[in-house]
């Protein structure tokens, strides 16, 4: 029996590995933001490098999984949904990497008193990603808990929006140059985009889940 389903097990493990990469990417982002706000730029750069490697590995793994799903004509009914989920979750990982890279390139000057707010923003944005990954895992194994995880994502998405709004209000009510204000707004917006991408994945997931109910 084990031999019979070995290939399926391998693919299962690869999908899990890919989702692990997305979660780890989120953790590296959180850590990177924290290090940046603390001014530990060298360690921040190391995290960014790790994140970029992880993103590349994720891309490779995703392509491998997609090829296998097509070649072996596995899960014919849900294949389109699964591939869509993998691709859109890859976009989330790309967005995380891109945001951290932009911080590294543009070195935004965040006022010290806004550090906790930006840190919260990063935390909430990554919480949506973690919820998204949990929901995807549930989609593969336990359909009944997909909904709970999606609700969690929606909650953190709202928190991210609220925090981003607070951050932007705080920035624009300060005595700063307009270019500086717009620059900071841009980084809040990018953190929001991470949460938005994760929410899009969950929207797709809720439809795919309905289709999977027998």
């Amino acid at each position: 029996m084990t031999v019979l389903f070995r290939k399926h097990k391998q693919l299962e493990a690869q999908i899990d590995e890919y989702l692990d990469l997305v979660v780890q990417g989120g953790l590296l982002f959180k850590q990177g933001v924290k290090l940046y706000l603390q001014g530990r730029l060298e360690e921040f750069e190391t995290r960014l490098q790790q994140l970029q490697e992880m993103e590349e590995k994720g891309d490779e793994l995703r392509r491998h999984i997609e090829t296998k799903l097509y070649l072996r004509t596995l899960i014919p009914e849900s294949r389109g949904d699964v591939l869509g989920l993998l691709e859109s979750s890859d976009k989330v990982l790309n967005r995380i990497t891109e945001t951290l890279l932009q911080i590294s390139v543009e070195i935004p000057d965040i006022p010290d008193d806004l550090d906790p707010l930006y840190n919260d923003l990063a935390e909430y944005a990554i919480s949506t990603v973690e919820g998204m990954v949990k929901a995807i895992r549930a989609y593969f194994r336990d359909l009944t808990s997909v909904r709970d995880n999606i609700n969690q994502v929606l909650f953190y998405r709202k928190e991210t929006n609220k925090t981003a709004e607070n951050f932007k209000r705080a920035v624009f009510r300060r005595e700063l140059r307009l270019s500086h204000k717009i620059h900071l707004r841009y980084f809040a917006y990018h953190a929001e985009l991470i949460a938005e991408e994760a929410e899009d994945v969950c929207d797709r997931l809720s439809i795919a889940t309905i289709k999977r109910y027998i």
Binding site: L4, F5, H8, K9, L11, E12, I15, L74, I75, S78, V82, Y139, F140, R141, D142, L143, T144, R212
Partner: peptide, 12 residues
């Protein structure tokens, strides 16, 4: 619902 079989294994 009880067994929580992975989608791929369920497919197999």
């Amino acid at each position: 619902n009880r067994a929580r079989i992975h989608m791929l294994r369920l497919d197999a």
